[in-house]
Design a protein around this nucleic acid. Sequence first.
DNA 1: GCCCTGACTGCTA
DNA 2: TTAGCAGCCAGGG
Length: 109
Amino acid sequence: MTDPKGWEVYWQMVRRIPRGKVATYGQIATMAGRPGRARQVGWALHALSEEGAEDVPWQRVVNARGEVSPRAEPGREGLQEALLREEGVEIDVRGRIDLRRFGWTGEPS
DNA sequence: GCCCTGACTGCTA
DNA sequence: TTAGCAGCCAGGG
């Protein structure tokens, strides 16, 4: 697939993340056909908050260390952690997720 | 069209 | 394991 509309490809990848699983920015970028462009995924998700994140589980996207990256606006990080815990994702006291168990390999649940 | 900023990553100390 | 540095691409002013 080429790039239909830029960010849309990233959003589609994020939508494929099954409930109770999380993926890294790099993973999304690679699966979207843009390896190494993790920052663009961040941009896509940032813009998403303005478009309407209801269709995209942005909370399931974390950085390579399995941590919830800080976002532009405060309050969102607490929401993200809450949403993930509701889906069954365990978050360490330091705010880290065990990617060995909750990391999405790119396959459906 | 140029410059700065950014929800990142990987390597090295 | 944590901290610091540089590289990449795209959007916005």
